[in-house]
Design a protein around this nucleic acid. Sequence first.
DNA 1: CAATGCATGTAATGAGTTACATGATTCC
DNA 2: GGAATCATGTAACTCATTACATGCATTG
Lengths: 180, 180
Amino acid sequence: VNTLAYTLLSLLTRQPYTGYDLTRIMEVFWRAKHSQVYPLLAKLESDGYVVSQWVEQSGKPNKKVYTITEKGLSKLKQWLQKPPAPPVIRDEFLVKVIALRYFDKESAISLVTNRMETYLQKAAAREAELNLMREEHGSRIESMDHPFFGRYVFFMRALRLEAEEAAWCKWVLDLIRSDK
Amino acid sequence: VNTLAYTLLSLLTRQPYTGYDLTRIMEVFWRAKHSQVYPLLAKLESDGYVVSQWVEQSGKPNKKVYTITEKGLSKLKQWLQKPPAPPVIRDEFLVKVIALRYFDKESAISLVTNRMETYLQKAAAREAELNLMREEHGSRIESMDHPFFGRYVFFMRALRLEAEEAAWCKWVLDLIRSDK
DNA sequence: CAATGCATGTAATGAGTTACATGATTCC
DNA sequence: GGAATCATGTAACTCATTACATGCATTG
């Protein structure tokens, strides 16, 4: 049972999900491909941490919905109390920034502009989602025992960091542009 | 030749380094263990992208200093022009935040406080390093062709994001504390 | 006298990506 | 007519971590 497994269990405490859903939702804080998620869910089921149920759908492929068990929840709670490992960051953009002097001005500007636009978009989407959450749940969501509290504070973090990233990009662009 | 290899080549454009140095320097934007770095450097050498030289030391183990070759530099420049892959983030802390409602108030506070302190420390260290760079290189460092320009803007980014992370932690702590 | 830093390397194992495989529906 | 979304799975491969191995110097 590794961190990915605990990530899946964490999300399943909120509500039952399919492997497909989980893969999509996790993207922002723990990227994993479906080819890793499906076998792991099967393993978690054979260990008794989750149970699954096929749901028939018309027009779409049928789906397998996973629900966390008592055993899974207690396993998760145990893990939650341990101090988290330091984050792993692997960002090709930053590697290229380190070597920025090997870019000509034009391609440096396009590199950073693309990054900025990506993060402006992300921030806008995040803000929209936060507004939606506030509408749906009101200020109760700012209370620790609300089921979406974790998700709410996480989204706030994402928004702040994405906005900051975009602002930094703008600063770099101004530096490059003012450099003759 | 994978991204880790290009990361090593990028750093070696600045100056010659040992595998030990490279492992340490990379930590902030591309984490890799020495067990991955040493064999890869050896491979890069056999491919002619870097050359190495043993440097004798007294009181410390001897070290193997790697220098990038012309071939390595042109290989790197080629890669730099390709658009960067989206960043990979794997952060156990965020997984635990998602499941924050399974924490009691006390341990939630300690989880977030630890994070905040870590990032405040990082930000302080980053600021010190930035001041050092400014002292050493002056405002020339804000020019794109300065060898430390990339490192400079990268450190500015790190500082801004670390400070923002700490500020977010404080916001979460206030939320938790005001929640009875 | 124990831990940490310097310094390099290999072997075994675990984690993660890419590619293969299938198939209906909806949107442009 | 082509791409994207929904939906699950396996096989082959690459990448990354942990553990093993060595050894001296400094710091607390």
